[in-house]
Every structure is written in C-alpha cells, then in structure tokens.
Design a protein around this nucleic acid. Structure first.
Lengths: 137, 137
DNA sequence: ACGGATAGACCACAAACGTAGTCATGCGGA
DNA sequence: TCCGCATGACTACGTTTGTGGTCTATCCGT
C-alpha cells in the first residue's frame, strides 16, 4: 500500500535475498550477499538492513542473540512499483516502446522468446483480428 | 561509451525533452517541462541543466544571449544502460521474469499485444518447434 | 572465570539529489 | 538613456545513499 517506500539500488539486493529466504539473520543475509558479490562489506549490509527496517520494508524478530529479518512488503508490490516508476522515467510512461526495446536490444534466448510468445498467446485469447484461430487440441 | 554517466530520476525528464527536441534553449526546455507538469520550478530545471552539462550528458552552444542545449549521449544508449541496470537491480539480471511481469501486470492494449507478437515473430524466424506454420496468404 | 569473537546500537562523512535562492549582467523597450 | 527583466553563474541546504567505523553487551570456548 505504501508507495512512500523508496528502495535504493543497493537496498534492492538486500531485499532480494530476504525475499528469497526469510526469515534470515543478518549473518545469513550477509553470507548470501558476499557469496555472489565478495565486495559486500558486512558493516555496509548491516547499515542497510537497519535502514530498511527504518523504512518499514523489513521487520525482525529476535532469534537467539541475533535478529531474524522478514519482509514487510511483498516482492510483487515492489517490483510493480519499481517497474512503473521505471517506465515512467525512462520511457515516459509508455510501456510498448520499452518492451520493444527490451526484445530488440537485450539478448533473449530463443527459449525465452518462445516462453514469451506462449505468454502472449495466453494473454489475449481473442485478439481483435487474429489471422486465424484454432481451438486448443 | 561512458557508462559512468548517471542520470537521476528528475534528470531523465530533462533529457527526454532535449532528446525530443534539440537544440533547445533553457526557456524552451522549461516551457516543455512545465507544460506537462506545472510543478516544475524554473530554477530547479536550470540547476539540473547545469548538472547535466557537468556530467557531459548535455552540451551547449551560445544562441543569442542564451544557451541552446544538445544531448551528448544518445537516448538509445541511455535507455539501454538504464534498462540493464533496472533488470539487474529489480530482477537480478534475469530478463524473462521482468517481461513476464510487465506483460502480466501492466495493462497493454490488445493492439499493443499484437504488435509485440509481431515483433517476436520477426525476432526469431525459425522457432525450434512451432506448433504449425502457414505461409502468409 | 576470562578473553576473544560477535551482534546490534550508534556515529561519521562524502557524494549525489531535489529544490530553490542570490548575484551580476546585458538586452530591449519606454 | 535608464530600468527592469531574463539569463547564466554561483550558492545554499536538508535528505538520501553508499560506505564503513566505534562502542558495548554478550556468548562461547578454553
């Protein structure tokens, strides 16, 4: 609900690991972070955890002598908010040019392209003027 | 080439109007900005223009007693960079979930969906296992 | 029981951001 | 010619972000 929630670039990485596995203690989170990116400094991570708690993006319960953190905001909500603000900023709110750009510029594997096609096929069962259509087997 | 170029949220709005119409004087840019968003303060816009010049994102030539600004970086490059950093941040670098999200969550008109489908069809002329295919009429 | 490793609390600090004000100056109209 | 207004130059300032350090209580092993 709260869109006043502003998650910065670096904070996103924290959130993603917590979303992936929660609850998680700071040590666990730091371990997961440094696993994929050794440049993470533990202190930095802890500061960010504290900030995310301050922002009400994370909550925590004491677990032993440490804290176990849990997300207070859903990943889906944040992804949606971030996506919206991104298209707004970069593409002026117009989604189509963005998709065109992504499909054109980024490299998608043929497999991913197929998945996308399938997705689109499902998405609009009745296109305005489909060249042809056939009932599913 | 320079990826050290960091364009902030607000700066993007400036850049987009300059990309849309360049060269443009500060007054023109401000006019275009306030046209779509009256909350823009002229002074703020001027500060951002100066910052963008400092960042080498914009250049300028004296035009009369004012400056005419022109982009020094292409919109395509910036869009690509922003897109990449966005997927990286929000989707952990994985493009497919992002497209899925966008197609699923955002509202695309049926027409846009068709365009996308067409785009995808062109993109991979030879799909691994097309259910069927038929030559165009 | 004691000393070192640890967790969280609190602090620091520069750079970037968002937002806007002041200053000096030159052009253009009265 | 003189004034004011628009313009760029410079300044201000609180907030956010990225990056880490210090301090203190504590738990665990020896």
């Amino acid at each position: 609900m709260k869109k006043n929630l502003r998650i910065s670039d670096t904070e996103w990485e924290l959130m993603r690991v917590v979303w992936a596995q929660s609850p998680a203690t700071a040590a666990e989170i730091i371990a997961m972070l440094t696993a994929r990116d050794p440049t993470w400094h533990p202190k930095t991570a802890r500061t960010l955890l504290a900030r995310l708690v301050g922002k009400k993006a994370l909550g925590y319960q004491p677990q032993g002598r440490a804290y176990a953190y849990t997300p207070l905001v859903s990943e889906a909500d944040c992804v949606a908010a971030a996506s919206e603000s991104f298209v707004e900023r970069v593409f002026g709110g117009s989604l189509r040019p963005m998709l065109v750009h992504l499909v054109e510029q980024q490299k998608l594997t043929p497999q991913e392209l197929d998945e996308l096609r399938a997705l689109l096929a499902k998405k609009s069962p009745a296109a305005p003027k489909p060249p042809r259509k056939r009932p599913a087997p």
